[in-house]
Amino acid sequence: MQMHDAKRVEVMIEAVMEKQIVRALEGTGVTGYTILPVLGGSGASGRWTREGNVSRAFSMIAVVCLIAPHRLDSLLEALFPVLDEHIGVVSVSDVRILRAERF
């Protein structure tokens, strides 16, 4: 079966920044993405868990999108000002997809 190259961009960021991340994605024409709640973890800012918290201030989310390789630079440029000083990680990986016209 015919497979195509694509990029998988994963942004792990504070839940309070969700709107800003979504705006950056949509602003660069990325309309397909998935937002996942994250249970907990540990990083440079210490341990955290979403359990028991009533404030969104201490939750993290993972935003995942698959894009065509030529969109990557403009997306990263749009994401950088949003991430800037916030707690979070961005990773990009090479993936193979079936239907290239969707991305």
Partner: peptide, 22 residues
Amino acid sequence: SYIAVPAAMRVALPRANPALYL
């Protein structure tokens, strides 16, 4: 406050240490 203000501070003052105010 430990519900509304921490969320606002994470957006507006991300450099502030959340461990201190929480």
